Simulated scan of single mutants.
Amino acid sequence: MPRDLVHGHLIPGEISPTRFVPDLIPRPEYVGKPAPQPYTGGDIRTADEISKIREAGKIAAAAIQAVGRQIKPGVTTDFLDKIGHEFVISHGAYPSTLGYRGYPKSLCSSVNEVICHGIPDNTVLAEGDIINIDITAFKDGFHGDTNHTFIVGETSEEISQLVSRTHEAMMRGIRAAMPGRQVNIIGRSIEAYAKRFNYGVVRDFTGHGIGQAFHSGLIIPHYDSAPHYADEIKVGMVFTVEPMLTLGTHEWDMWPDGWTVTTKDKSLTAQFEHTIAVTENGPEILTLFEGGLA
């Protein structure tokens, strides 16, 4: 089990071989390349494009549901990757993370002190752990991106509150995304709420524009970045809101794999994410699945 036996912190584990994707499923352009092509488009999506992002987002959300049903003590994060991978490809979509800048798996599994981008491996989940599952699906040329933090079995009230409050922070950020405002209102809303509980708010990993590109140039901070990040929120914009809150510092370390980000003080951290479209009446969440996780 890849954990530090002295402190119980996560350490790198063994990564299984790359999973197979049928040839008939279209790949994003970056698969097999060191990096995606530079994005040169704008931030506004047409109604047809938003419809396609919504369809991809529903697949990603349903895949997270399928993975969530398998989360329990004794399960490995690699097994969860298998569940997510098979669900996405069974719906004719491509798991966007697989091959993105060399990322080796079909979802991100971030356990306990891992802020984001944890690589599924032979880590065994234990009672009281928390785990974030981040899945993006690529269908009909568009990506839909979402994530959810799950509690493994039973945990403490402090940790349970961190998880539920991180979800509420995301929803507050989403509700703030009204046309005519600046994107920094989203982070201001998130941080104002998180500060009530003395949570750390991760700054260096942000929400992003999404569509035909997995990540466009639009940046959505989750902290109070005013007066910076002053892009106007406009009808037709599509982007993610995905705050990461911690029980300690917002500072972080990176593992040698170049992906796994952990809190510098090893405090626990939770995250939630939705892809949203901005309408005349406000934000619409595109990564919902009927009867599923909000």
Results as ranks from 00 to 15, higher is better:
Glu127Trp: 07
Asn122Ser: 05
Phe142Leu: 12
Glu127Val: 10
Cys108Asn: 13
Val114Leu: 08
Asn132Asp: 14
Ile130Cys: 07
Ile135Ser: 08
Ala137Thr: 11
Glu113Gly: 04
Pro104Tyr: 08
Thr97Arg: 06
Asp129His: 10
Tyr103Ile: 15
Lys105Leu: 12
Ile133Gly: 02
Ile130Thr: 08
Thr123Lys: 09
Glu113Phe: 06
Val114His: 05
Pro120Thr: 06
His117Ile: 09
Ser110Gln: 11
Ser110Met: 09
Ile119His: 01
Val111Glu: 04
Lys139Leu: 15
Phe142Asp: 00
Val124Thr: 03
Ser109Pro: 11
Ile135Trp: 07
Ser110Ala: 11
Thr123Pro: 04
Thr123Glu: 09
Glu127Thr: 11
Asp121Asn: 15
Asp134Trp: 12
Ile131Arg: 06
Asn132Phe: 04
Ser96Met: 03
Asn132Ser: 15
His117Arg: 06
Lys105Thr: 12
Asn132His: 10
Lys105Asn: 10
Ser96Val: 14
Glu113Lys: 04
Tyr103Lys: 05
Val111Lys: 05
Asp129Lys: 13
Pro104Trp: 09
Leu98Pro: 05
Val114Lys: 00
Phe142Ile: 07
Ile130Ala: 01
Leu107Asn: 07
His143Val: 14
Ile131Leu: 08
Ile133Tyr: 00
Ile135Glu: 02
Pro104Thr: 12
Gly102Ala: 04
Ile133Trp: 04
Val114Ala: 00
Phe138Lys: 01
Ile135Tyr: 10
Lys105Phe: 02
Ser96Pro: 09
Cys116Gly: 07
Phe138Thr: 00
Arg101Pro: 13
Gly128Ala: 13
Val124Tyr: 04
Val124Glu: 09
Lys105Cys: 10
Ser110Tyr: 01
Asn132Ala: 14
Gly118Ile: 04
Tyr103Val: 14
Leu125Met: 06
Thr97Pro: 13
Thr123Gln: 10
Ile135Met: 12
Asp121Val: 10
Gly99Glu: 07
Tyr100Asn: 10
Tyr103His: 10
Ala137Gln: 06
Pro104Ile: 12
Thr97Glu: 14
Lys105Val: 14
Val124Arg: 06
Leu107Phe: 08
Val111Asn: 00
Gly128Glu: 02
His143Leu: 05
Arg101Tyr: 10
Asn112Cys: 13
Asn112Gln: 15
Gly141Ser: 09
Ser96Asn: 11
His117Pro: 07
His143Glu: 01
Thr97Ser: 12
Gly99Met: 07
Ile133Phe: 08
Gly102Tyr: 09
Val114Met: 11
His117Val: 07
Thr97Ala: 14
Phe142Asn: 01
Phe142Arg: 03
His117Phe: 10
Asp129Val: 12
Tyr100Pro: 10
Asp140Phe: 03
Ile131Ala: 05
Lys139Met: 13
Gly141Gln: 03
Asn112Ser: 08
Pro120Trp: 06
Asn122Ala: 03
Ser106Thr: 15
Ile115Asn: 02
Cys108Leu: 11
